[in-house]
Nucleic acid binder design. Structure first.
Lengths: 244, 244
DNA sequence: CGTGCGATTGAGTTGGTTCAAGGCCAGTGG
DNA sequence: CCACTGGCCTTGAACCAACTCAATCGCACG
């Protein structure tokens, strides 16, 4: 479908992420290309996984955003984590695990089964899983100890880092398809307050936010301001070399 | 050391938890008994794992409580999760992973290496890991969407459920070695406000709290009040049958 | 008999919520 | 072509849950 000589791991953002997490051999590459053939698509708002239901096989997000969320009895909703292109869902060790949260598509979604036959792919899955956990911990400190403004900045920095792994960040600008009310559910705030906080950030020139995209004007400045550190999970420096 | 005919999985609370998570065979039992020989102890406040440092082999908490915490630049601290007897730390899939958070002993701690040679033990580790993740998600909704009182109740219910797996709960009463300021770091509150919220709970007769122990007066009432659901990770009903 | 840590209390402040309108599209159907 | 609808964003004003600051108390320990 794309240029023949070029491996899919370079042309598809989601695959670039996997290639950044582990060194993929030729066979892994072929398996991914094969998996991409069986991709399916999902409409916004559709559930990709339901809390309490058995988890299907591991699935790779090819494009679009999703959210791992839990709904409380009285209608409150908390989004535990965002799921971005290249992320895996249902990536766990057990035989027949039950989902501990729902996963819902935040926009149009494309996904395919995630093969994990080769050692390289298994490694990529393991690293991806470790990163997922790191993101959960980051989310906990955000909610527990950061102010509204800090939460917002910290989240944007995390998303930037994560999208950078797939090569979806240029000049610190990237997609931002989040509704303010979805954002509120991520950050544990009200939509109204998210709105006001966003305005503050725009007003101070820290971010530019229009038409479903953000640009961070001074990422490293912001990072030191909120004490953000990029999640690292392996000791090798391999991942760093991959982002162009 | 204990009665000869009785397997260690019944006499040691931490082992009872593992036995509750997977059906342990005789060999697993022997391995645990062997591991217990190599137990070591740790003083309160000591770090069991340091953020950014490589993770040692999987370790089992035999007794005492610990906390997985992250410290912010300005001194704020967030405890991501409590680590209780029978819990595993450093229980992950990777070769040489880096710790994404520190683990600090909240009191006197006893621990031993956690063997995972047999299939049964591997299974127990996998289930334990899945539960850990479920607790992280619970922590996120607590911090993001629950009020101070709800957070406190929900946490107490979680701890009760978890300690029950080791048989450390009698009549809904169990150990509660948490300082109010540690509790504040868990719940994302200030110590002062934790104090006031605790008084409220005591005043309303919902909990009795003295001398490092809590008793929940109406756990199921409390559970429905805060929408607490006990984490379940496997579809089999086996785990339920184990708690006496 | 200090000394220090943890729990408690009071009074004032604030970050974030709530409630309630309005505004701004993009899509839809007449 | 325009009116109508439904999401989503924006704004204002009042309110309140939780925070801050600062003392005081109780107690275990040396």
């Amino acid at each position: 479908m794309k240029a023949m000589g070029r491996p899919v791991t370079q042309s598809v953002p989601a695959f670039r992420r996997l290639a950044a997490l582990a060194t993929l051999d030729l066979q892994s590459d072929r398996l991914l290309a094969e998996a991409a053939m069986h991709s399916r698509s999902l409409q916004p708002g559709r559930e990709l996984l339901t809390e309490g239901a058995p988890v299907p096989g591991p699935t790779l997000i090819l494009s679009g955003w999703a959210a791992r969320a839990r709904l409380l009895a009285d209608g409150r909703r908390q989004i535990m984590s965002l799921i971005l292109p290249g992320d895996l869902i249902g990536n766990c060790r057990q035989n027949l695990p039950l989902a501990v949260s729902s996963v819902v598509a935040l926009g149009h979604l494309t996904l395919c089964p995630a093969p994990a036959i080769t050692e390289a792919l298994k490694q990529a899955h393991a690293v991806s899983h470790a990163l997922d956990e790191a993101y959960l911990l980051a989310q906990i400190t955000r909610l527990g100890r950061l102010s509204a403004e800090e939460r917002l900045i910290d989240l944007m920095l995390e998303v930037r880092d994560r999208l950078a792994l797939c090569g979806l960040v240029t000049d610190n600008a990237f997609a931002w398809p989040l509704t303010q009310s979805a954002l509120a559910d991520v950050l544990g705030l009200t939509p109204v307050h998210v709105n006001r906080t966003l305005q503050q950030l725009r007003g101070s020139g820290d971010v530019i936010l229009r038409a479903g995209r953000v640009q961070l004007m001074d990422p490293s400045g912001l990072a030191t301001r909120v004490g953000h550190v990029t999640a690292r999970v392996t000791s090798d420096t391999e991942a760093a070399r991959h982002d162009r």
